[in-house]
């Protein structure tokens, strides 16, 4: 009887293990195709030149620069607002209706579909604020979308700061703001940065919010100001794969661009994951 139960357990555990492995396998398959077919497109020329011949040849430099420009605007918007919101929620607010209201707002903002952010950015930043299709409009849209991620990560980092630090500082006659600025934030800083990298990497890979707010099909020049329209890696993949007349002929460029985007996004993620595990180890001591 007990033997039978243990056999059941063994079989079921194997299923669970297979499920977990399936995730890894799926990721591996996608990576295999993108890498094996994309790396041949990668060359110095590909990374350092603009597209030529109606985007059937040449490189993706404007897309790389454009994506970076969008990310920069995103950081400028989301990091200060996100960290400040987290400071309010974790350090100042007491539990109550106002906080629950604010949290409800953040949770729902996190759930808004990316294309809806795109619609909002188009109607608000591009049209009402007259910023047009530009790195600024796209970056602001991405910034609002990234906000909940950064708030969440910053709150987690602030929570991990032992309360005794705050008490010790206050007991010495430091004001609350001095305590936050000089004790709490320095300790929470690595965690905040980790979370922010994760948020920005997500923004870098997004397409739908920038399709009509920041990114364009093709522009021969690199952006000179944040009010210029830009090309972006994710949108470039979409455009090449669906909208050209040479879809089959530019396949290698599509794979190449996808590979560059994945390297960029995963690179940010891996560095954040490694940084975070280091922080956790430090906290345990």
């Amino acid at each position: 009887m007990i033997k039978q139960r243990l056999i059941v357990q063994k079989v079921c555990f194997s299923f669970l293990k297979i499920a977990a492995l399936l995730n890894g396998a799926a990721l591996a398959v996608i990576l295999y195709f993108i890498i094996s077919r994309g790396w041949r497109a990668i060359s110095w020329e590909f990374l350092s030149q603009a597209p030529r011949d109606s985007m059937t040849a040449g490189g993706i430099l404007p897309c790389i620069v454009g994506t970076m420009a969008l990310c920069l605007v995103t950081i400028f918007v989301a990091l200060p607002i996100g960290v400040a919101s987290a400071i309010y929620l974790n350090e100042y607010a007491s539990q109550g209706k106002l906080v629950r209201f604010i949290r409800l707002g953040i949770n729902n903002l996190a759930g808004v579909p990316s294309i809806v952010f795109g619609l909002f950015g188009l109607a608000f930043f591009c049209i009402v604020l007259k910023m047009g299709v530009s790195a600024a409009s796209g970056g602001l849209t991405l910034g609002i979308m990234t906000l909940p991620v950064i708030i969440g990560a910053s709150e987690e980092a602030l929570k991990s700061v032992p309360n005794t630090y705050r008490e010790a500082s206050l007991a010495m006659g430091a004001s609350k703001w001095q305590t936050i600025r000089k004790v709490v934030l320095p300790v929470a800083f690595p965690g905040i940065i980790t979370g922010s990298i994760l948020g920005i990497s997500r923004a870098a890979g997004e397409t739908a919010p920038i399709m009509y707010t920041g990114a364009v099909f093709f522009t021969p020049d690199l952006p000179a100001s944040i009010l210029d329209e830009v090309m972006a890696l994710p949108y470039h993949i979409y455009v090449l794969a669906t909208a050209g007349t040479q879809i089959e002929a530019t396949r290698h460029l599509q794979y190449g661009t996808a590979l560059v985007l994945i390297v960029l996004v995963f690179g940010m993620n891996l560095s954040a994951i490694i940084l975070r595990s280091k922080i956790r180890k430090n906290l345990r001591i």
């Binding site: 890894g24 990721l27 996608i30 997500r202 997004e206 739908a208 396949r251 996808a258 996004v265 993620n269």
Partner: peptide
């Protein structure tokens, strides 16, 4: 090992997944 894999899945840009669905 598995947790970072799941996190990387989450961070895979959607356009790449769509592209993969389309061409593979």
């Amino acid at each position: 090992i598995v947790k970072p894999i799941v996190e990387l899945m989450a961070s895979m840009p959607s356009v790449v997944i769509g592209f993969f669905g389309m061409v593979v």
